[in-house]
Simulated scan of single mutants.
Amino acid sequence: MSIIDFLLEPLQYEFMVRAIVTTVIAAIVCAVLSCWLVLIGWSLMGDAVSHAVLPGVVLAYVVGAPFALGALVFGFLAVALIGLIRGTTRVKEDAAIGIVFTTLFALGLVLISVTPSQTDLNHIIFGNILGVSTIELIQIAVLAAVSFAVLFVKRRDLTLYAFDPIHAFAIGLSPRFLGALLLGVLALTAVVALQVVGVILVVAMLIIPGATAYLLTDRFGRMLVIAPALSAAASVVGIYISYWIDAASGGLVVVVQGAVFALVYLFSPRQGLLGRMLARRRTRVAA
């Protein structure tokens, strides 16, 4: 089989084309957001929101509503509950996150267990990228466009908030508002990625691209280019591999992203493990 056949054969199937387009859309918007999440240290928050949307997805399936609507409602609910607990009690943020996301995730599992005939556990938990319909693709594209537009318009304010919230407050910006805005975009983006990799692996798409780019550059502007480029490429490779070896598409997308991070971790010129070892060796020789 030639390389041309290898690349073109999957594209003969409409469901594969929809899967690739959907995955690339989700990968790009998740990667852009992940740059801010990595800088602020909100990895756990991304995990919380991605798990907390499960009951919303189940309820949407039960009543026949679009899954994105139920997930979006519970995503914002999770953000609001975390903020409420953090702001009105002595409980710290990490504990509030743990309480909210585990409780809502457990609620989702309970709802699944009592409505087994109307929900598909595998599709909700692990994603169903190969089963994306045209309507779902449009929904995902619209939600991704909204998330991307907010990040683009407020990119300077959000970047200042990520690096120095005190300075942001000093020049008249509201760190509380910017934090809430970023959390809202996080909830929206988690819904976008949900169909691709499912509830369990959403956090990987929200964290790995930004962490990978962070090892490759020390300039935030470059991170915003490197992260989505690597994420989109890894997603396409993952989808192709899943086609040829008949394996879980969402899982392979994340595996490829993780493999890219591992390569960068080892071979990045400045931050890579081997690069640092060589730098230390040169220092010893020079001394």
Rank of each mutant, 00 (worst) to 15 (best):
residue 15 F to W: 07
residue 16 M to E: 05
residue 16 M to W: 11
residue 17 V to H: 06
residue 18 R to M: 07
residue 19 A to T: 12
residue 19 A to E: 10
residue 20 I to V: 15
residue 20 I to F: 09
residue 22 T to A: 15
residue 22 T to P: 02
residue 24 V to F: 10
residue 24 V to T: 12
residue 25 I to N: 07
residue 25 I to H: 08
residue 26 A to L: 06
residue 27 A to P: 10
residue 29 V to H: 06
residue 29 V to T: 14
residue 30 C to F: 02
residue 30 C to R: 02
residue 30 C to T: 13
residue 31 A to M: 09
residue 32 V to Q: 09
residue 32 V to S: 04
residue 35 C to Q: 07
residue 36 W to G: 01
residue 37 L to W: 08
residue 38 V to R: 05
residue 39 L to F: 11
residue 40 I to F: 00
residue 41 G to H: 05
residue 43 S to R: 03
residue 43 S to G: 15
residue 44 L to E: 10
residue 45 M to H: 10
residue 47 D to T: 06
residue 48 A to C: 12
residue 49 V to Q: 10
residue 49 V to G: 06
residue 50 S to M: 09
residue 51 H to S: 06
residue 52 A to L: 09
residue 55 P to I: 05
residue 57 V to L: 15
residue 58 V to H: 00
residue 58 V to T: 05
residue 60 A to L: 02
residue 60 A to M: 07
residue 61 Y to Q: 14
residue 61 Y to E: 13
residue 61 Y to G: 01
residue 63 V to L: 11
residue 63 V to W: 02
residue 64 G to N: 01
residue 65 A to F: 13
residue 67 F to K: 00
residue 67 F to Q: 05
residue 69 L to T: 13
residue 69 L to C: 00
residue 72 L to A: 11
residue 72 L to Q: 12
residue 74 F to N: 00
residue 75 G to Q: 04
residue 75 G to P: 11
residue 76 F to W: 14
residue 78 A to E: 11
residue 78 A to V: 08
residue 79 V to Q: 03
residue 83 G to W: 00
residue 83 G to M: 02
residue 84 L to D: 02
residue 89 T to K: 09
residue 89 T to N: 03
residue 90 R to L: 14
residue 90 R to P: 06
residue 90 R to I: 11
residue 90 R to G: 15
residue 91 V to A: 04
residue 91 V to C: 07
residue 92 K to L: 02
residue 92 K to T: 14
residue 92 K to Y: 00
residue 94 D to L: 01
residue 95 A to P: 00
residue 97 I to G: 09
residue 98 G to Y: 01
residue 98 G to P: 03
residue 99 I to A: 14
residue 101 F to H: 03
residue 101 F to G: 01
residue 101 F to Q: 04
residue 101 F to K: 03
residue 102 T to R: 02
residue 102 T to W: 03
residue 103 T to Y: 07
residue 105 F to Y: 15
residue 106 A to W: 06
residue 108 G to S: 12
residue 108 G to D: 05
residue 108 G to N: 13
